[in-house]
């Protein structure tokens, strides 16, 4: 049953550009996918490691800016992707070393500060980042002969990356490492007493989260072909966290659902409802009131308790 559902979902996802009609909706689907990768990355920390980060838009932006800088200096797309991810990994490691000096509120505040530093650099170091005018890049790559310039091509490439991200998350969750990350969330002192290096486990979780955040940032840059300080604001970090929390922390489907909810509300619903911010807020409040564990676990609970079963 589960396998069948998975296969059906794959078929539906792979054929999206063939049945949604307008390329506009294909582009929306691409956005959902790369924001889902971002949300999955935030979920590694917020969900499994119990470390709430409000600075991940900083890492997301570092990837996008690094890629834009490497590209505008005339390098090929392979160098762009490799360079941007290397820079993001290094930044994530630095972020982790600084932020992991605290847990709980301390961790949150340090990540806020780090994110704001990235924003400050993006906004004020004009010779490097072109300030609030941002950096424009031209062209998307064509890996293996598939041109990403068209909305369909870009969607399929994003889908491939997205599936890779989901698979890596599934492996991570099932692995002993995933179990030890959850252990440091629930019982850090006991984990320590058992001989686990709690700090190192958290550090590695942070770096894993940073890696996929970087991948999402790279996709964001290729999608928009533009990056500006707006991409690294505190609001952007909070939005990623909201995706995770509304969908359901420490689940695989939750962040994906949350990303879809936010992207659809922001882009599609806002064309019909002027006060879409209000509606989005109301939806979040409703989720917190009726399904505090998030949409995906909440719906699963309702289905389980349903008398129809």
């Amino acid at each position: 049953m589960k396998r069948f559902a998975l296969a059906a979902a794959l078929v539906v996802l792979a054929t999206v550009p063939l049945w949604v009609g307008s390329t506009y909706y294909v582009n929306i689907a691409s956005q959902i996918l790369f924001y889902a990768v971002f949300a999955l990355a935030v979920n590694v920390l917020a969900g499994y490691a119990g470390l709430v980060s409000l600075g991940h838009a900083g890492l997301f932006g570092i990837a996008a800016y690094a890629a834009a800088k490497i590209m505008t200096s005339g390098h090929g797309h392979l160098a762009v992707a490799a360079g941007a991810l290397a820079v993001t990994l290094a930044a994530a490691a630095v972020f982790a070393v600084l932020a992991l000096r605290g847990t709980g509120l301390g961790f949150v505040m340090i990540t806020v500060a780090l994110g704001q530093i990235v924003w400050g650099v993006a906004y004020r170091w004009i010779s490097l980042t072109n300030g609030d005018n941002g950096i424009t890049i031209s062209g998307r790559p064509s890996p293996f002969g598939l041109s990403l310039a068209s909305p369909r091509g870009f969607y399929w490439a994003t889908l491939a990356v997205f599936l890779l991200a989901v698979a890596s998350m599934a492996v991570f969750v099932a692995s002993p490492f995933g179990a030890s990350v959850r252990g440091t969330r629930d019982q850090p002192r006991r984990m320590n007493a058992l001989g686990y290096h709690v700090w190192m486990i958290r550090f590695l979780a942070f770096v894993l989260s940073g890696f996929w955040t970087g991948v999402a940032g790279l996709l964001y840059l290729y999608y928009n072909q533009f990056v500006s300080p707006q991409a690294v604001t505190l609001t952007a970090s909070a939005e990623a966290l909201l995706m995770v929390i509304s969908g359901g922390t420490a689940t695989l489907l939750g962040p994906i659902t949350g990303a879809a909810l936010v992207v659809v509300m922001k882009n599609v619903a806002s064309a019909y409802i002027e006060r879409w911010n209000f509606v989005l807020g109301a939806i979040f409040v409703a989720i917190v009131v009726f399904m505090p564990e998030g949409l995906v676990p909440g719906v699963a609970r309702l289905v389980r308790r349903s008398p129809l079963r």
Binding site: G134, N224, N267
Partner: peptide, 21 residues
């Protein structure tokens, strides 16, 4: 009429909506 929300990514999406859809 499309509301961009005052940020570049939103503007891009809204522009695609206007042009493509």
């Amino acid at each position: 009429v499309a509301d961009t929300g005052g940020n570049p990514a939103g503007t891009k999406t809204k522009t695609q909506e206007l042009v493509e859809r």
